[in-house]
Amino acid sequence: MTLTASTDVTAAGTGQPAVHLDGVVKRFGTVTAVDGIDLRIRPGEVVALLGPNGAGKTTTVDMLLGLSQPTEGTVQVYGRSPQDAVALGLVSAVMQSGGLLKDYTVEETVRLTAVLFGKPRSAVTTALKRAGIADIADRLVGKCSGGQQQRLRFAMALLPDPELLILDEPTTGMDVGGRREFWDAIREDAQGGRTVIFATHYLEEADAYADRVVLVRRGRIVADGTASEVKSLAAGRTVRATLPGAELADLTGVPGVESAEVRGDSVYLHGRDTDAIARYLLNQTAARDLEITSRNLEDAFLTLTADEETPA
């Protein structure tokens, strides 16, 4: 079920992955938020970290930014510890919410970031322009809309001129128009070759903006490939049949079956050649009451990320 992107993880000629997660586990007390993630991201890739709420995306992002330490495993950003990478401005982030003071103006907020990163005033103007908020520079942050605040966070993230930009659920709470504008700004920026990782639970965002999609479920990577590779997971169809006493192990052995599920007396067999699966079921087993349905992207996502203990 897991797709893997090509193993050559580094850009030609440069030896270092932008991000290297090695056996990363993060536990909070008895809760395991991230359960063994291995991930390499090449410089220049635009990667979507896709998964439902609570899949461990934000926890992973926090570790990439040095805001939290993995319980096990190592996290490296451009060959350094995340804290060092952050301090040098190699990595910056647009966080989901918070992180702004409402009694600063937009321009002051960006200027403060510039002061901290030792950047000149001209960098402030550039960042404001690139984030599309130069016209509201003198507005107090408290008076800005959610979309404007998000673009302010984007301007702050652009200031250190990072190699890697991390966006954590960047468009949550934005309307359709605001979302499109925000992504246009990001896409324009990424053309310069910046590495971008964005966590999202919007399929269409992953589909539209990522070169590579990493599907996360319950703290693990369940699929990893180009957007079209992951989409091809959705190309198959599902045969549902009533087959009391079916064993999962037998079903996955059926020719053409890519994945199988048993729910009570019903079995669900996923695969491309559903005719062959149906023929096999009717000829070789006691299955009856067959239905064949096609899966869409939404289904693939749900199948890949569904919680086994609470079937939808």
Binding site: L65, G66, V86, G89, M95, G99, L100, T113, L116, M156
Partner: peptide
């Protein structure tokens, strides 16, 4: 306001 957290994403 989460500002302290934001500052942790700077060299401060």
């Amino acid at each position: 306001a989460g500002w302290s957290r934001q500052l942790r994403l700077t060299p401060l």
